[in-house]
Design a binder for these strands. Sequence first.
DNA 1: CGGCCGATCCACT
DNA 2: GTGGATCGGCCGA
Length: 185
Amino acid sequence: MGTLLSSIFYQRSDVTLIAKELLGKALITCFDGQERIGIITETEAYAGITDRASHAYGGRYTDRTRIMYEAGGIAYVYLCYGVHSLFNVVTNVAGIPHAVLIRAVVLPGLAVKASKGPGKVSKHLGIHYSHSGLSLNGPEIRIEDYGIHPMPAQILVSKRIGIDYAGPDKDLLYRFEFPYQYSDG
DNA sequence: CGGCCGATCCACT
DNA sequence: GTGGATCGGCCGA
């Protein structure tokens, strides 16, 4: 049905551009033989070591964050508030820890049900923080282009959520929404 | 090793 | 609008 995204797509340097271009793409998971699809409708960009909202701010390199330093095209998933697994797309080349948080998808299988909130996205797609590091071009997780491409004017731009600790960077306009309504065809 | 805190969500007021 | 749940990760001692 769709076409996989190339490593070139993920490894570009403009993380906000990639965050916008991920809108409308299909995030597909297959765990326990069950395939689930979500069309991405909301993203946030996290711009690496200079971004106070990023886990990699200041070059922080730990067992958890080292995934972000790998080459773009893999998943960075981490546990938030001891409850929620939050799913990110790692971007840029190896050594530059950029990432895009997927905040919302629409789920064709649930008849136009939206899944808003990054914790719910992972819950509905069966993603767990133990999946951090998996390829986005593999049997468990993949992202495809289904030919859904929002016009720039359709994309809502705003501040990121839940990062009030990030000082001046909390006001960066790094959140992107595409008010897409799924319908058959 | 202990303590603090979070890229959230839900129930309740 | 507010507060509690809940626990791995991070940092300081």
